[in-house]
């Protein structure tokens, strides 16, 4: 029960929901950049939403499946072909033994997620299978996958995965692609070019004029962007009179303002503390959108109240619970 990596592509790493609980030791939480898509991918194959998935950045990866597997693709940023034919995102797919899957360029998005029923057999590090690249630990040997790697797949599938597989063998019309998908009204629109934010603790350090400048102009996501954070570039913002702060907590979604007046948007591998003013906090529900931006894309920030952001968070979580329940009801009856 294994998958062979034929080509590693730009960057393919294992991620789950991260390792919270060690931030007081300076350990970033990490986890999938697009947490919505990684959880959805798991649900589609009957997995627990916190199972590790492959996070594939853009194109280039090629995988060979040696035995029959149930997989799902979510997110964006690639066109995926199985034995030459394009396969859809957001559906359970039964992969036949000795099938090859390749990730080709697409016009938008950045990160594709591949889940597999049974999950990846990888030892957890500090409670998580997430790869932490800066310290080279977690995931598969602490690094991105390379040609020649062999990924072991868990032998024990749960009843729900088995039921989905049975259904695909009987009704898959030979393609192995599920006729059903999940219609999630509350799903993030991964092509959005604007994200919502709430005021950060140092928002008031900006004059009204500068606050307006932050929320009225588009920022470019520069090439100096990675899983830790995105360095943005726009018309610089200034804090007058200039003020210094002692390091305080930062988290995924925090927008810090550097001394050059350019914002940095912290992402999944965000450090736990930072010394730059935290001018904004991107709404959690829009972080999957941010995860799908590519360097060169433009981003705009729209102010919302904390209560709006919090309600959207609850709605989003309810949506995901609803999807899980629906899939279970359909196959476990």
């Amino acid at each position: 029960m294994s998958i062979r990596v034929i080509k590693g592509g730009l960057q393919a790493i294992l991620q789950d929901r991260g390792r919270p609980g060690y931030q007081d030791w300076g350990v970033p939480v990490g986890g999938a950049m697009d947490d919505w898509s990684s959880r959805l991918a798991n649900l589609l194959v009957g997995n627990d939403p916190g199972e590790a998935v492959l996070e594939i950045t853009l194109q280039g990866m090629a995988l060979l499946f040696e035995s029959e597997h149930l997989i799902a693709l979510t997110g964006a940023g690639s066109e995926v072909r199985m034995d030459g034919k394009v396969i859809p995102f957001g559906r359970a797919i039964l992969v036949k033994p000795w099938s090859a899957i390749r990730f080709h360029p697409s016009s938008s998005g950045c990160r594709t997620y591949l889940s597999i029923s049974g999950g990846f057999e990888i030892k957890a590090v500090m409670g998580s299978r997430s790869t932490y690249l800066p310290a080279a630990w977690g995931g598969f040997q602490g690094r991105a996958l390379e040609a020649g790697d062999v990924l072991e797949i868990g032998a024990r599938r749960n009843g729900l995965s088995e039921a989905i597989m049975r259904d695909l063998r009987e009704h898959g019309h030979g393609s192995g692609i599920a006729h059903w998908s999940v219609a999630a009204i509350g799903a993030p629109d991964l092509s959005r070019r604007a994200v919502r934010f709430i005021k950060g603790p140092e928002w008031d350090w900006l004059s009204e004029d500068q606050q307006h400048r932050f929320s009225s102009q588009p920022f470019v996501i520069t090439s100096r962007s990675n899983r830790m954070g995105y360095r943005l570039r726009g018309q610089p913002l200034t804090i007058i009179p200039s003020r210094e702060m002692v390091s305080a907590a930062v988290t995924r979604g925090s927008v810090q303002l550097t001394h050059e007046g350019q914002p940095v948007l912290l992402m999944a591998d965000a450090q736990t503390t930072g010394g730059y003013p935290r001018i904004a906090q991107v709404a959690a529900v829009d972080l999957p959108v941010c995860a799908q931006y590519r360097p060169g894309d433009r981003i705009r920030f729209i102010p919302v109240s904390f209560l709006e952001a919090r309600q959207a968070y609850f709605d989003r979580e309810a949506e995901l619970l609803g999807i899980a329940k629906n899939i279970e009801l359909n196959f476990n009856s």
């Binding site: 931030q23 007081d24 305080a248 503390t273």
Partner: peptide, 26 residues
């Protein structure tokens, strides 16, 4: 978890579970 810094403390929680405190009131 609770995360200390020089002069501040941050507390992280699961809002779905913490919502029970104060009747869903932020």
């Amino acid at each position: 978890e609770a995360v200390p810094a020089y002069a501040s403390l941050s507390v992280y929680f699961d809002p779905l579970r913490s919502a029970r405190i104060g009747q869903m009131d932020a």
